[in-house]
Design a protein around this nucleic acid. Structure first.
Lengths: 113, 113
DNA sequence: AGCGCCGGTTTCGTTGCGGTAACCAGGACC
DNA sequence: GGTCCTGGTTACCGCAACGAAACCGGCGCT
């Protein structure tokens, strides 16, 4: 129980990082270019974005397709494996919409003490 | 889109850390004592466990009940808010059971290059 | 007096994630 | 020759999470 391969550890193990979930969301509607990801993901720097994308490619969540044009064009696309995360992200979003305000209220009340 | 209060950010924001999900799992069947949590959560030190529990208490996910006995006895129990995370953790576990092997295979193939 | 139990705290150090800023390669365009 | 574009890389740094090990307070037991 509870080693890195344990199913219960998957959140911190793979999608607990800061940007992976948002990248999956951004690619939900179809392939996007590097620059098109930097826009909606406000605040991500190119370094962190490229690290995130590389890790996701390594794990088979996205495919990277580079077109030999100029200026260079690179597209990132969800694989079926990456797409399979969408229901999980939906569930997280639903939980958040319903319960996050309550959590924040509890935190604020605690801090007030 | 995608600030800390955005529902999509909830995984890293609150349950993306290493131990919170497992603590919720351990408390699923009922209240447990500090020492009873350290057992199944192999590898967690008392310091990290107490930090995790304190953060969860602050956010209203668990309640801490100290009995003034000796030797001291302290029990931790899920609140309704904490319990509401269970379906999300179930979904994560289900995804993991179904897809984690594929992810690991992709990673291994990538590392082989 | 000394030991053990429980539920921690303290100290110190390591690791890793994320961020800032500067730089780069190749071609197009002026 | 200089500048812009895309899609990055590199070097450096700070902070927070994580972890190992030692210690502690109160009581009961022997």
């Amino acid at each position: 129980m509870f080693d890195p391969m344990c199913p219960s550890s998957v959140l911190p193990f793979r999608i607990g990082d800061k940007w992976t979930g948002m990248v999956v969301r951004c690619l939900e509607q179809g392939p996007r270019r590097f620059g098109e990801l930097r826009g909606p993901l406000r605040g991500v720097t190119s370094k962190v974005l490229s690290e995130t994308l590389r890790a996701m490619e390594r794990d088979g969540l996205i495919r990277r397709i580079a077109y030999p044009e100029n200026p260079p064009r690179v597209e990132y696309d969800l694989t079926p494996l990456g797409r399979s995360l969408l229901p999980l992200l939906d569930a997280a979003r639903a939980w958040s919409r319903e319960h996050l305000p309550e959590l924040l209220r509890a935190r604020q009340a605690y801090d007030a003490d």
